[in-house]
């Protein structure tokens, strides 16, 4: 089964325990929410799954493969693509080129064919270009292929990043705050898109998001973490009524006030 299993994951930064023996399992076909106050450790979980961080303890498996022994560039070959909380697009490459890099693992040709730009290479390029354009179209941002990301508003940039993750044909999509910086209308569109990708394309989604209407609206299951520890797990309805969760969020609001 294409499940993502996080097992007793621990990650420390110096003296700080960012993730503390965290367990949860995303089942194939789910939209799974990972929420918690700022600094709770959500992005750190993503970076552990992507192989950017060495774990201090625990295990991460996907499709029954251990991810912890893989290099970070090998993760996407297992069918896991991701976006970043702070947009990490390639600045001096066009949007099209960004989405071509997103398909890096789908190309079959190597350096020598590239040097000669053989017919096979050109066919592959054409295919990848068509796929990039179609994906932009799907996300409602068609026609921006030959522009650079910095010339677009934040909401569009986040969509481009999502498109770049999608073109690799992932089984599991990790989205780190996809709706950040979007207005309510755009947020609604993103929610519909995630739902559509999940239901029609069969993509499993692990979602980190602060917009509660989005999370509660589309997630099948949610884990709430605070200070790197799981404080609750359940359906959106269960989470909304959980006093521990309410306290974690309210407590934070009081601290902010």
């Amino acid at each position: 089964m294409g499940n993502l299993k996080i097992d007793k994951l621990t990650k420390r930064f110096g003296g700080l325990v960012a993730i503390d023996s965290l367990d949860f399992e995303v089942e194939e076909g789910q939209v799974y929410g990972l929420i918690g106050p700022n600094g709770a450790g959500k992005s750190t979980v993503f970076n552990c799954v992507s192989g950017f961080y060495q774990l201090d303890a625990g295990e991460i498996t996907f499709d029954n493969n251990r991810l912890t022994t893989l290099k970070s560039h090998e993760i996407i070959r297992k069918g896991i693509a991701r976006t970043f909380q702070n947009v990490e697009l390639f600045k001096n490459m066009t949007i099209l080129e960004n989405l071509m890099v997103g398909q890096h693992i789908n190309f079959k040709t190597g350096l020598f064919r590239h040097a000669l730009r053989t017919k096979k290479v050109r066919l592959e390029e054409d295919e990848a270009r068509a796929k990039a354009s179609a994906t932009l179209e799907l996300l409602g941002i068609g026609g921006i292929e030959n522009t650079y990301y910095a010339s677009h508003p934040y909401g569009v940039q986040k969509k481009v990043e999502m498109a770049r993750a999608l073109v690799s044909n992932p089984k599991l999509l990790l989205l780190d705050e996809p709706a950040a910086g979007m207005n309510p209308q755009e947020t609604k569109e993103i929610a519909e898109l995630i739902k559509w990708l999940n239901e029609e394309k069969g993509i499993t989604v692990l979602l980190v998001e602060h917009d509660m209407s989005l999370v509660m609206g589309i997630c099948d299951q949610i884990t709430v973490i605070n200070f790197g520890k799981k404080i609750a797990e359940g359906t959106p309805r269960e989470i909304q009524n959980n006093p521990v969760v309410i306290e974690a969020y309210l407590g934070k609001e009081e601290a902010n006030a």
Binding site: S50, G51, F52, K71, S72, H73, E74, I75, I76, R77, A81, R82, F84, E88, L89, F90, K91, N92, M93, E97, V101, G102, H104, I105, R164, S168
Partner: peptide, 16 residues
């Protein structure tokens, strides 16, 4: 070019 612009994004896209 991907390596030049962002090594972490390049890695996430499968660039060795």
């Amino acid at each position: 070019m991907a390596i030049r612009d962002s090594e972490i994004a390049a890695m996430a896209m499968g660039v060795n």
